[in-house]
């Protein structure tokens, strides 16, 4: 179990957790969205600054656990400069990876691969997904002009 624990809290995850990227709130965001994990009550706020159809920067404000903090940090890191289509593709990969499903291994997801160890701890998958679900909801809502309500990790 100690090994399984280390498998989840890999060095890369701990490094993102201790020094999270995108931690400073963007001051003039184009999109702001809150997300909530109903299982534990954790809340995050994602802010996105767009540059046409590309994401310029993302900030993830969260007081969550190591897993959700690290996952949010990786999100901020990888999404910078990506198009919306790319971000959605990555979010899909993260979901598949966390749920132990098949995904496109040819796509370079960098540090995110380290999240794989989380899938042995089903209750923690929600922690890792929170920022991704929130970001995708935020982008969708922006595109369709839908009302922004808080995202949850349900479903």
């Amino acid at each position: 179990m100690a090994e399984q624990l280390d498998e989840m809290y890999r060095d890369i995850i701990m490094e993102h957790y201790r020094f999270p990227r995108g931690h400073d709130k963007i001051l003039n965001p184009d999109i702001t969205k809150e997300g909530r994990n109903p299982a534990c009550g954790d809340e995050i706020e994602i802010r996105v600054k767009m540059d046409k159809d590309k994401i310029e920067t993302v900030s993830v404000d969260c007081a969550g656990c190591a897993i959700s903090t690290a996952s949010g940090s990786m999100l901020a890191e990888i999404c910078e400069g990506k198009t919306i289509a790319e971000v959605k593709k990555i979010a899909g990969i993260v979901k598949a990876l966390l749920k132990g499903e098949k995904f496109d291994k040819s796509y370079d997801i960098g540090d995110i691969e380290a999240l794989q160890g989380v899938n042995k701890f089903p209750v923690r998958v929600k922690c890792a997904l929170l920022s991704w679900t929130t970001l995708v909801d935020a982008i969708d809502a922006k595109q369709t002009g839908r009302q922004l309500t808080a995202s949850t990790t349900e479903g």
């Binding site: 399984q4 989840m8 969550g64």
Partner: peptide
């Protein structure tokens, strides 16, 4: 410093 989720996961180990 440690979130309760991480803490209880660690305690369980």
């Amino acid at each position: 410093k440690i979130h309760s989720h991480d803490l209880s996961q660690y305690l369980d180990s």
